[in-house]
């Protein structure tokens, strides 16, 4: 009894696990079907017919392109800021056991641990108080704040895995702090940073709750979608946009997974 219990999963467990996975994936797959439906007034199932024409319609929509452009811009800038801040934090925390490093970890986690609406409304009222007009930068300010944590987590994990004596070895061989960072630290954490950066980009690209408070009249892609969700006007275009968004976010996630999984082999496999 013991050995069979240890090496083979109970049937019920397996079923429950697989059903759980299906529950998570079927709704997303459904969107793929709807992107091709000929029905444009309701969410009718099963679709009365299939067509590709909505892709063309969507392609020719300037408002979608405009929203996409803003989203990419915001995500790119936020990612860069998050990379810098997250790496600095991770380096500080893993370098030394200083008083208050727990506080730093909490500070980094807080923006995602607290409900997004709080971050959003806090920033908005701060902008009001400080009389800052809404712009790309007000959106970036919010996004970078909660993106720091993903970069930080990835970088801290990599710092923890790499030997502390590498830095000492580099200094021992004549490299000062900056040269050590350039030639040893950076190459060793590069893949972790790339992964963290991709996740940060995905997080920012998708964010809507904070953005509604910090965007003013500007429309990012998620805000465009939110408007469609609240007041559906062009269901077929929304279906297509939704499907494209799913595909576009999957790529960085897959890439980030392979980067962190093979982190040690990417640099280490010369054969």
């Amino acid at each position: 009894m013991r050995s069979s219990q240890d090496y083979r999963a109970p049937f019920a467990l397996k079923i429950a696990a697989v059903l759980g996975l299906l529950f998570m994936h079927l709704p997303i797959l459904l969107i793929f079907v709807y992107a091709f439906t000929t029905e444009d007034k309701t969410y009718q199932w099963p679709p009365p017919g299939f067509t590709l024409k909505w892709f063309e319609v969507t392609w020719n929509r300037p408002d979608v392109w405009e929203a996409l452009r803003l989203s990419v811009k915001v995500s790119a800038i936020s990612t860069v800021i998050a990379l810098v801040l997250g790496t600095l934090c991770a380096a500080a925390v893993s370098r030394s056991k200083f008083f208050g490093r727990e506080t730093i970890s909490l500070l980094v986690i807080l923006p995602i641990a607290l409900p997004g609406i709080i971050t959003g409304i806090a920033l908005r009222s701060a902008f009001n108080i400080a009389d800052i007009p809404f712009s790309v930068w007000t959106i970036v300010l919010g996004h970078a704040t909660f993106c720091v944590v993903v970069v930080y987590n990835n970088a801290v994990a990599r710092f923890r895995r790499s030997s502390a004596s590498l830095i000492e070895a580099s200094m021992d061989l004549g490299a000062n702090g900056f040269q050590t960072f350039r030639y040893v630290v950076l190459p060793n954490i590069a893949t972790a940073l790339l992964a963290g950066g991709m996740l940060a980009f995905a997080l920012s690209f998708d964010e809507v709750i904070v953005t509604t408070f910090t965007a003013g009249q500007q429309t990012t892609l998620p805000i465009w979608m939110l408007e469609e969700l609240v007041r559906p006007r062009q269901r077929p275009v929304t279906n297509v946009v939704a499907m494209v968004v799913v595909l576009v976010t999957f790529l960085p996630i897959l890439a980030a997974y392979y980067l962190t999984r093979d982190g040690d082999h990417v640099a280490g496999d010369g054969k």
Binding site: S165, M171, D172, A175, N176, Q179, P187, G270
Partner: peptide
């Protein structure tokens, strides 16, 4: 004097070879 200005070199216990270099 910081380590990088000392003409002293070290063989580390875990060797500390840089994994990203040949």
């Amino acid at each position: 004097v910081p380590p990088y200005r000392r003409n002293v070199n070290t063989v580390f216990q875990d060797y500390a070879l840089f994994p990203h270099l040949t």
